[in-house]
């Protein structure tokens, strides 16, 4: 692959169809931030360690700094910006705000996206299950207690809605 190779991808991004031709080496995080201006996907380490760049790929959480955009051709992507329903916050976003599961907010999109995926799989996770699921995301501000509180609050609210 040379630096000038390009690739054309078609993805469903936050519910909308996108077709774009990119340098083949473009990372998924670069595609989202630099091409689609979805800057809620953050770059904290660029080594797939901190999780600030987590997005949903066909519903599964992946670290977008560690994948090429070319790998998502034909798939469905959801970023933190795609979680709102109109002006309504997603229950997980609402809970992170209400329970103070974020401080500086830099890791928050990654935690929110990971938590959404967890609650899709497990509507009433225990604290150890939440800890296990979120161990791939790093937060330096909260000490995690209020993040876990937020996930539990979101689970409770989602169950009540169902």
């Amino acid at each position: 692959m040379s630096a000038t190779d390009t690739v054309t991808i078609e993805v469903t991004l936050n519910g909308r169809s996108v077709e774009e031709t990119l340098a083949a080496r473009t990372l998924l995080s670069e595609f989202l931030r630099d091409h689609e201006h979805l800057t809620g996907t953050h770059r904290g380490c660029e080594t797939a360690k901190c999780g600030a760049c987590t997005v949903l790929l066909d519903g599964d959480p992946v670290k977008s700094c560690n994948m090429l955009a070319a790998q998502v051709d034909g798939k469905e992507l959801t970023t933190v910006e795609g979680l709102m329903d109109g002006s309504e916050l997603h229950p997980v976003q609402e809970a992170f705000w209400e329970k103070h599961g974020m401080q500086c907010g830099f890791c928050t999109p990654g935690f929110v996206v990971s938590s959404v995926a967890l609650l899709e799989e497990n509507e009433d996770p225990s604290i150890p299950e939440i800890r296990d699921h979120l161990a791939g995301n790093i937060c330096r501000c909260t000490g995690y207690t209020k993040i876990i509180d937020s996930v539990q609050e979101a689970a409770k609210n989602q169950q009540e809605e169902r």
Partner: peptide, 9 residues
Amino acid sequence: GRRLVTGTG
């Protein structure tokens, strides 16, 4: 908080 949880900061 609202802009931070929505990734719009």
